[in-house]
Amino acid sequence: MTASPPAGIRSFPSSVGRVFSVFFQQGRRARRTRFFWLFSFLPVAVSLVIKFNQIFSERPGREGVYLFSNLIMLFYLQMIILITALFFGTSVCLEEIEGKTLPYLLTRPVAKAAVVVGKYAAYTVIMIGMVSVGLVLSFLFLNLNHLSDPSLYGLLGRYLGVLILGLIAYGAFFTFLGSAFKRAIFIGLLFSFGWENVIQYFPGSSQRLAIAHYLKSFLPTAAPGGRFSFLTFRLEPTAPRLALLVLFGLTAVFLTLACVLFSKKEYVLED
């Protein structure tokens, strides 16, 4: 073999791209991804049950958009994106430490921060793919009778956008947790089903301390008295532009913290 120094080795974006490519391929095939495909299809199964029930009981039931907004978004916003982002986000750093595969990455001509950003990007794309497919299928099943209505697709785009933003922001936060703590999953569960699910319902400005608040600020305003009020209960929405800025700002902050920690911290691989 002869050595030929590869070009662009010092380039950070090129390193991120290489890490992304490797872990996107690896992540797609991982058993965890197969499990989360099934998990993200739970709402699809629920949608199918509802639709079959409507068809075979010959009762019109609620409108598809209403069911989608109330039931499916509840599934996705309150559970699926949180759990998916928790397991994929924390694994960015933790799987290398717990699996003791870290030396393979640390002894490559790739900056440690590029490892974090590249893996985060790869796992976020995989998560978005999984959640989007489930969401679109659920939407289509529930609105089977109104598929020719173009306004529905605008709504679908909006919901999809909220979930993607959620995965990006939560993913970054959990990536940070994974780089900082050994028990990141436990802390993440406390955060997801403790902090996020409680603080968002507080009145006043304290609800702005939850990521969920900014996500819900993009949701359509609830019909008065509708059951959609479950999701927007006591919501005092932030302006969409500001919400978007906050979500991207939080993503940047948490990713930067994860990169700094991963670069500076010494991970001792235990026998």
């Binding site: 070009a7 490519s21 490797v22 391929q25």
Partner: peptide
């Protein structure tokens, strides 16, 4: 995968 991290084509 590890070789591609080295930056080779």
């Amino acid at each position: 995968s590890l070789l591609s991290l080295q930056g080779f084509s």
